[in-house]
Amino acid sequence: MPIYPYDKGGKEHWYYAFEVKDHNGKRKTIKKRGFKGKTEARNAEAAARTEWNKGTYIDPSTLLYKDYVTDWLKNKQDISDKTRITNEGHIKNHINPILGEIPLQKINIMHIEKFIQSMQEKGLSQGTVKKIFNFVQTSFNSAYRKEIIAKNPFALLDKSSKPRPGRARVDYWTKEEIKIFLESVDHRNKIIFILAIYTGMRQGEILGLRWRDVDFENAQIRIRQTLDYKGEIQEKVKTDAGYRSISASESLLAELKKHRTLIEKEKLAAEEYFDHDLVVCRKNGRPTCVTNFHRFWKRRTKKVNVRQIRFHDLRHTCASLLLSSNIHPKIVQEMLGHSSIKVTMDTYSHLMPNMQKDAVAALDELLK
């Protein structure tokens, strides 16, 4: 069998190579490297021969990037369904129009630079450009490790040419804007906004919150499950840090009790009730429709004379109020469920100068 060893990084690897004739009778060599064992190489060689004989073999030198990246993404196991759908959208809208029709092995630095420029010309945010760039770079890193390509163009790219990471978009309401908005809302879903502002919980955490996770006696809210973007209940949260308990104020507990009374009345009035123990649900008990909720949010903010912000910005609103009240960033991190205090500090660093002024003034007072 045409299996051969070679050295890579001081370790023995294997490749296969065999000759065939194309439909014009011209001889060509089919070759692939990157196998860590002789058996693995032999099995791959046998499969390649079978594919050639069936007419389904794809020559790596002619493999288009769009075919490679689609197959590569399909085989990735370490991403969520939401991330996979997002990446598929990026491939269709931003990646394939520039790189898709070029053979993987022929893509060079000039192609990558043109790809970056195309995203910037579309007016994509700095953060989005960086995410798409990282996705494509990771796909090339994988192709290089598997020795599908001999050179990785990303390794040759100047640092100055790479897109810079964008600062997370942060907007928030003032105390006055919060009061105006909450006073204008007279709806059974008002509790969603109250929870977001008073606790900084994520949308999925609020829509997936169960009554059993609201501890009225000890004034605690436990985050244990979420509602995902498809409207399905997930008995998990975004990160390990997301599993947390949040202290609930007297005002928040009073609003929750009022809302619980409403839910109990709806249970009795409904012809058929699907009890998922959800704090936030439809009148028949089923989970909230995420798409409809976003429409509801936009209608409400347009109806009231306040600045238009995203629902996620209510989470930032909670953080800004806490930090402006000199609450330690570590407490804010724990409440919001950030994976580290660095995330909190990086996201809300623009709020820190005011805290530093207060700290310096306090130190000055102590040392007088």
Rank of each mutant, 00 (worst) to 15 (best):
Y68L: 03
G285H: 07
N75S: 13
K267R: 15
V306N: 03
L104C: 07
D67F: 00
G204T: 10
T317Q: 12
L321Y: 00
T86A: 09
P60H: 09
E101C: 01
S80N: 10
R315M: 15
M345G: 02
T70K: 03
T86G: 05
N93H: 11
H328Q: 15
D71C: 01
L367Q: 15
G10V: 13
T56V: 06
Y348V: 04
R295A: 10
T261R: 13
N284K: 06
T347P: 02
K28N: 01
G55M: 04
Y243H: 14
T344E: 05
N305Q: 14
M119N: 07
E121G: 00
N93A: 08
L73E: 11
C318R: 06
L209H: 03
I107L: 08
H328W: 12
K303H: 08
A196V: 00
M335A: 08
N134C: 06
F135D: 08
D59S: 10
T62S: 12
G100K: 06
P329F: 12
D213L: 00
I107T: 07
N93E: 05
H187D: 15
K357S: 14
S184D: 11
K8N: 14
F135A: 03
G37F: 07
R27I: 02
V343C: 10
G208P: 08
E272D: 09
D158E: 09
E264I: 13
Y65E: 07
I194M: 09
D313F: 01
S161R: 09
L336Y: 03
L73W: 02
S161L: 12
N93S: 10
V129M: 00
A41L: 06
F193W: 13
K151I: 14
S61L: 12
A241L: 07
Y172C: 05
K11A: 15
T261S: 14
G208L: 09
S245T: 15
R42F: 10
T29E: 06
I148D: 06
Q137K: 14
V20L: 10
K302R: 13
L321C: 05
Q117G: 10
F154K: 05
L314C: 09
V279K: 11
I246G: 08
I180W: 02
K21N: 02
Y198V: 01
F35Q: 00
L64H: 01
L252C: 13
N292D: 11
G37T: 15
I109M: 05
F193H: 12
H276R: 10
P60V: 06
K283Q: 10
F311G: 12
S139W: 01
D158S: 11
S251T: 12
Y198F: 11
